[in-house]
């Protein structure tokens, strides 16, 4: 990822550094499929302003492209008549829009208080270890798993709670972790 809009002022900044807040490029222009466009058009009928459709439109984009790239932001901004900076600002405010491609299984461990009391942090660490010493947010070498930590999933009675992509999983402990991961293959 580059450090942003321009290049650092050479005589003052030294070497350019890598930024972490910019939208990654997909390397190509993107556009919705006809089906997604139809969904988008229907969305617009549900709100008095175009802007209100931004979050749902980003969901459609994520469904279409898998993640929100620089080009996806430009595309969505164009669809809704918003500035790309605004769209990226909104995208990054919310945690569920992927800012990079993720593995086939996006494993989301809740570590908030109830899951913490059930030892979620240890399970999270164990899971990353099993999948090849992954850092949080890292995707396994085979591209199948991305493991991240998330805040409360509102499944505190099923602690430690885990979400994989859009599906909820209950009581994932160190004991059943292997079986759980096996089920994802």
């Amino acid at each position: 990822m580059s450090g942003g809009a321009g290049t650092p002022v050479s005589e003052q900044a030294g070497l350019p550094r890598v930024g972490e807040h910019g939208a990654l490029s997909a390397g190509k222009a993107v556009a919705f499929s006809p089906k997604a466009l139809a969904r988008f058009e229907k969305l617009l009928t549900r709100y008095p302003t175009k802007q209100a459709a931004l979050l749902p439109t980003l969901w459609i984009a994520q469904g279409e492209f898998g993640w929100i790239s620089r080009e996806a932001v430009d595309y969505v901004a164009g669809l809704l008549g918003l500035s790309p900076a605004f769209v990226w600002g909104v995208t990054t405010f919310y945690t569920m829009y992927n800012r990079a491609p993720v593995g086939k299984h996006l494993i989301q461990f809740c570590t908030s208080i109830s899951c913490h009391l059930a030892g979620a942090e240890e399970v999270f660490a164990e899971c990353r270890k099993i999948l090849g010493d992954l850092k949080p947010g890292e995707t396994s070498a085979d591209g199948r798993f991305t493991v991240i930590e998330v805040e409360c999933l509102a499944q505190c009675d099923k602690a430690p709670a885990v979400m994989v992509n859009d599906d909820d999983f209950a009581i994932i402990t160190k004991d059943n972790l292997q079986k759980f991961l096996g089920g994802l293959r």
């Binding site: 990822m1 580059s2 450090g3 942003g4 809009a5 321009g6 290049t7 650092p8 002022v9 003052q12 900044a13 350019p16 550094r17 890598v18 930024g19 972490e20 807040h21 910019g22």
Partner: peptide
């Protein structure tokens, strides 16, 4: 803020 310091963010402005 690595990557976001002392950067020409536009033709006239340094952020």
């Amino acid at each position: 803020t690595p990557g976001y310091d002392r950067t020409e963010i536009g033709p006239h402005v340094i952020a």
